[in-house]
Design a protein around this nucleic acid. Structure first.
Lengths: 127, 127, 127, 127
DNA sequence: GTGGTCTAGACCACT
DNA sequence: GTGGTCTAGACCACA
């Protein structure tokens, strides 16, 4: 798992870290019980303050993705895979909803929207 | 056209105003050349500082949606409808892209994703 | 509302602040929509780093007790009073449960426990 | 006597060990003069560092529950039963005090609190 | 070694 | 003025 941060981004550094680790967990790159890089190591790698990585890991713990254990490290939390799935599905529906709303503004027909969807889907790499 | 702001929202107030006026313009609620409420009137209606509405109108002018005329008011700008259309299409594609990326995390097949899309589309009110 | 912190306490300063503000909110000392002291003011009053009060207010926001608004301040959040009540009742039951468990270790009879309970209740100030 | 530790718990492992051994002693599961498992054996059983079990036994000795004898092992200390009793009673009163304080926040009457107490007591298994 | 907390500054965006 | 983020150190408790 690699974390890459952009200092120029609008989203805060700690949030960028959260998002990328969350993605890695959801994508199955790291598994339940795996140890994540230590707060200080990650801070060194990213050339970022320890406070920043600490905050990222704390957020991840509050969101239920990891468990931080004093003196041991940060572990990927066991997760209810059904729950993850529902979360992801809801996210997808939200994106679709936003796209449909925008299409309404553009006065596109449903057929038009379907065409755009199919086009985007085809161009998105292998399945 | 009505603007409704939420103080507790994450998005800044000036941005909320921008978005809603932009939507109204794109949706055709107001037309090219129409005059928008004055900075001070809008500030009073929304119980918001004049600085905030000023910033909103400045942003809208920079983005090309309105023209502020000293001593007269704020007018809806003439718009190249092709340009608007392209902008909206890009927004739609972005939403689709995000949905597809999320679907990748959820290990959904394209067929699954299509099903969700159709389902969301059906449930989104009349065309 | 006054916040008093003990540097010698085991519980972190930010948590002490959270607890006391939470109590003030639950007790109705401050009401929905009231403004809390600003992060910097509170930091100055308590002679504590700004980061510490910031963290306290962030925690309170995450727990749903307040809403922090950039450029305006920190407001007491509207709360579902039914939810609060349930939360408090659950807390009370937990305390009772712990007391009962301890009484089991001490091989106290239920009658003994009732006596202690009544004794503590009488000595706890006016109703 | 069995000790079960949770790595993910907030309370440190050494403290979890202390609490469970203390409970066993107070509950009479082990008696004055009984020998406890050796530091190394317990460390092996729990898959925990020897440092951790050492600290737990040291704490228990400081608190007066056990006596560590060089080269022989760890024995349950003789206890002044009156002292134990007082300790437990204080713990119970603390729990009641916390419950009463919470009830004050919830603006419950004493009668309400008594009802909850009785309800919890009834539901807590046989005497 | 690990994470948890804290300081005393700083800069930025928003009102 | 307000909150949001960040730094580069520090000390502590735990394993």
């Amino acid at each position: 798992m690699r974390v890459i941060i952009k200092n120029s981004s609008e989203t805060p550094i700690y949030e960028q870290i959260c998002e990328q680790i969350t993605s890695a967990i959801l994508a199955g790159e790291v598994n339940e019980g795996d140890v994540l890089p230590s707060i200080r190591q990650l801070a060194g790698d990213l050339k970022v303050s320890v406070m920043t990585t600490t905050r990222a890991y704390n957020e991840l713990e509050q969101r239920g993705y990891v468990v931080n254990v004093q003196g041991k490290g940060c572990y990927v939390a066991p997760r209810d895979s059904e729950l993850i799935r529902e979360q992801l599905l809801r996210t997808i529906e939200e994106h679709f909803g936003a796209a449909i709303e925008t299409a309404r503004l553009a006065k596109l027909s449903r057929a038009d929207l379907r065409t755009i969807f199919n086009f985007t889907l085809e161009g998105s790499g292998d399945e």
